[in-house]
Amino acid sequence: MPASAAGPADPVPDRDPGLQPERTRLAWRRTTLACTVVAVLAARQAIRGGGTAAASVAVAVVALVWLGFLAVAHRRVRALDTVRPRALPLSGAVATAVCTVLLALCAVAVMR
């Protein structure tokens, strides 16, 4: 506990009483898990037709998208580790949505 464990007059308490940053962090974790499931399904789809060169490329793209999502989520989780975190930057929101759309495009590309 930092030394600021004073009375209620303290303008910045040790933690948010509603645990808002924690809840937001867990929401990022859930979303990362959902993204992992989709990425695994995408990889499974890509290698179903055999280990061709196209399949390898598809798996590599899916892995890159997943890593990109992981990086965005990790940065945000780190940024949430304060009592009063700043709002999500627009670039983070756009990157998250772009990863989702890219996974959908991967699905269309490897569809048969």
Partner: peptide
């Protein structure tokens, strides 16, 4: 900040 975080969770 709590409103922004709630908006972020809805987005997620």
């Amino acid at each position: 900040y709590r409103f922004s975080l709630a908006n972020e969770r809805t987005f997620l």
